[in-house]
Structure formats: structure tokens, C-alpha cells
Simulated scan of single mutants.
Amino acid sequence: MIKYWVLTVCCFCAVQLSFGKVYKVATPEEFSKAAAVVLPGDEIVIAKGNYNGWSLTLNANGTAAKPIIIRAEKTGKVIFQGEVRRAVLKISGSYIEVKGLSFEGCILFKGKGSDVVLVHLDAARYCRLSDCKFIKDTVNTDFMPIVVVSGNGDHNRIDNCSFSANFNNQEVQVRVGKEDVSLYTLIDHNTFMDKDSVTWKGNNGGECVQIGQDPIMLGNRYSYATVRDNRFIRCNGEPEVISNKSSGNKYVNNYFEDCHGELVMRGGHECLVDSNTFAGGTGGVRVNGTTHTITNNKFKGLPIAIRLMYGMAKGKIDTGFYIAASDCVIKNNKINQCGTGILIGGSKNADWTGKFDTKRYPSRTMQDVAPFNNEVENNAIKNTKVPVLKETAP
């Protein structure tokens, strides 16, 4: 009997040891103290409440079996609000999960020498932002994102988050730099909705998702990001709902409804656009660059479903403000009730003289290189005024 009692106690102690410590915090100071001592399996629980002026950092390492968790005491009841002049939450290290936080009505002010964002995964590995809400957040300067993945990290994930009625900002940005790039980012099962047009000059800087920032000089860098199973509803921030500006990325099984914008291969090469649905709105998929695969997508009620664009240059080596669409596969897509199904030759002979810095971007300014060597076949196009329109003549 004593032997069984000892065995039971040992088992209980083993179970206790398998769980980490829980640190409940309600101030930035309490968070910082917990962040300095957390170990794999520990949790930092932020107490219910509305908070303003917080700037939190955590640089630590969990494990795959025992991640470090930062979570709301109750999902949706920990709300960050007000002016933001430094990152609210900056995560570095590995195997850290952030869950259940809300950011509502935050106003981000750009500062010198610091990233002003709501959540920043900085050179992180296997970290996760999950089940968080971003509602009516805005910024004071163009091209500012509210969630950023950057640095030489890999396998970070943003999932099951809600982005609603955010204004004048980019919502999720994966940075691709000359010296560093975060690889294999997964953005999945999020909802982006009710995003009004930006007020910035040129109607630019309001993407929901941006993978890479410099398609002209850094579009050849491979980031291998995956954007899948997300919903984009009434996203009208700018002409690019999703902006791809790097290579080797995948866009799979996303749903777009009544968006004033497109899924855009602005730069980069060898991306996959597969099994997405576009219902209403101003456009479907726009393609520059080489060796993209656009397959098994559904388009309904659009002016133009798929656009293969002219460029200033061709191939993966030449520098051009736009690269002509070439060697792409456009296959097995279903197009219904559109004005034009597939346009081969968008922006023909567009003149960009004076519209970009030719010293920074050593490119010709005339968009006169036609799309070429693209495989367009087995697409089911119905009830569409112009199934395929070719504008490739000189």
C-alpha cells in the first residue's frame, strides 16, 4: 500500500513539473519582471482590462513541446488602446505564442529609430500570434504596418486573428531586406474586413497583406511565405489587397468578397496562386514576373478576372520597375459573369516617365515589353463578355 502511495505522489509531482509557472501581470513592470525569468512551458497572463502606453518586449526561448505563452486572462477582455509611439509587443527568440489580445482604436505615431507597430515578431523562430483582434487602428504616416514579421527568423505564424475597420495602414507585413528575411511565414485562417481606402497620395499603402517591400531590387529574394485560408471582405484600402513583392510564396484557398483591389504579383517569381475564390469587387489576380502558377481559382462578377501585365524588362535578372509576365501557367481556373476573363497584355505602353526615381531604380520608364511564353489552357470561362483578350501587338 505504501508503495502505491509513493508511486501516486511521484506521478503527481511529475505532472506538476510538466506544467510551467503562471505569471499574472497587470502593469508593464510586472510583465518585464516575468519576461526576465520565464522558462519553457511558462505563461504570462495579462489581467482583464483596458491598457494604454504599454511597450512590452520578450526575448526568450521555449521549445516545441513547451512554448512560452503570453495570453489574455480572457480572450477579448485585454484591450490595448490610445496613442502608440513604440511597439506595444515585440517578440524575439523562439517558440513563443501570443493569444487572445485585442488592439482597438490605437493611433500609431512614427518615431525616429524605432519600429512603431502593435505586434512585432523580430528575428523570431517558430513564434505564433493567434486569436487576436485589431479593430479601428490607424497610423499617422503612410506605409506603416500594424503587425510585422521581420529579421532573420523563420516559421512564424499569424492565425485566427481578426482585422476589422483598420484605416490608412498596412495590416500584416513580412519584411524582405537586403541582409535579412524572415522565411516560411504562415498567415492563415484570419479575417480582414471593412477596410476603407487610404487617404495617402497615390492611393498607396493600404494592403491587408504585404510580402516584401522592394519588388524592383529585392523581388528576387525568396521568402517562402504561405497565405492560406483567409477571408478578405470589403477590403478597399488600395488596389492591392495582397501585395507579393518577393519570390517563392504561396497564396492558397483564400476568399475575397467585394474588394476594391486584387491579389497582385507586383514583383518576384515562382509564386503559387491556387484555389482562391473571388466574388465581386474590382478585380481578381494581377501578374508581373516569371514562372508563377495560377491554377484552380474561381472568379465571379469581376471586370477582369486575371491580368498578365506588360513590363519594362523581362526575366529574373533584368531590372525593371515592372517585369513582364512570362513563363507563367494559367490553368484550370473557373471564370463566370466577368467583363473580361483573361487579359493578356495589361498596361500596354504605359509611360512612367517622372513617376519613379530612375537613380534608385535603374529601369526604363516605358511599359512596352509584352507578356510571353505563358501557358493559358483548360480555363472554364462562362457568361463572360470577352473570354480572352490579347493586347500583345507592337
Rank of each mutant, 00 (worst) to 15 (best):
L121S: 04
N220Q: 10
V273H: 02
E238I: 05
K3I: 13
I107T: 14
K201Q: 10
L302I: 14
S347V: 07
V273N: 06
T63Q: 01
T185H: 05
N383L: 15
R307G: 11
T282R: 10
N52P: 05
A123I: 09
N59P: 07
I211M: 12
G205A: 09
N52I: 15
G315P: 02
I70S: 01
G206N: 07
E238T: 11
V88C: 01
W200K: 02
I294R: 03
E83Y: 13
S246E: 01
K99L: 10
N61L: 05
A123K: 13
G261P: 08
L101K: 03
I342S: 04
E262L: 13
W200L: 03
K355L: 14
G289H: 07
K48H: 01
E207M: 04
S223T: 12
I294P: 03
G113C: 04
V241F: 09
N236S: 12
T358Q: 12
I233N: 10
K48S: 04
G341C: 09
H189G: 02
I70Y: 13
K348S: 11
I70T: 08
R128M: 13
V25N: 01
G354W: 14
G212I: 12
F19D: 06
T57R: 14
A350I: 09
L343A: 05
T295F: 10
G49Q: 00
E104A: 05
D229W: 07
G284M: 10
L218V: 05
Y95W: 15
K298L: 14
T277I: 15
G289Y: 09
E270M: 12
V388H: 01
V198A: 05
G341E: 04
E73P: 02
I304Y: 07
P40W: 03
M309G: 04
G205L: 07
C127T: 08
L263S: 03
G283Y: 11
V388C: 01
R228S: 13
K250C: 07
C106P: 00
L263F: 14
N336W: 12
V172A: 00
A165Q: 11
S326H: 06
V78F: 04
Q170V: 11
I44T: 09
V285P: 03
F134L: 08
K314F: 14
K382F: 14
V98C: 02
D196K: 07
H189M: 01
E29P: 04
V174Q: 08
R234C: 11
F192Q: 04
C127R: 00
A26K: 15
E375S: 14
Q213A: 10
G320A: 02
C10G: 09
E391H: 09
D368F: 12
T384G: 06
G41D: 01
S162T: 13
C13T: 07
P40S: 00
N297E: 03
Y361P: 03
G311I: 09
K390N: 10
R157N: 05
N160P: 00
S326N: 11
R175S: 11
K66I: 04
Q173G: 00
Y224D: 02
M309Q: 11
D115Y: 13
P239F: 14
W200D: 00
A35F: 11
F134C: 04
N140R: 09
V329A: 04
G281D: 06
V388T: 08
R231K: 15
A324Q: 01
K112D: 13
F143P: 00
A165E: 10
C338S: 08
Y224P: 00
A124P: 05
R231P: 00
H269M: 01
I306W: 03
G341Q: 09
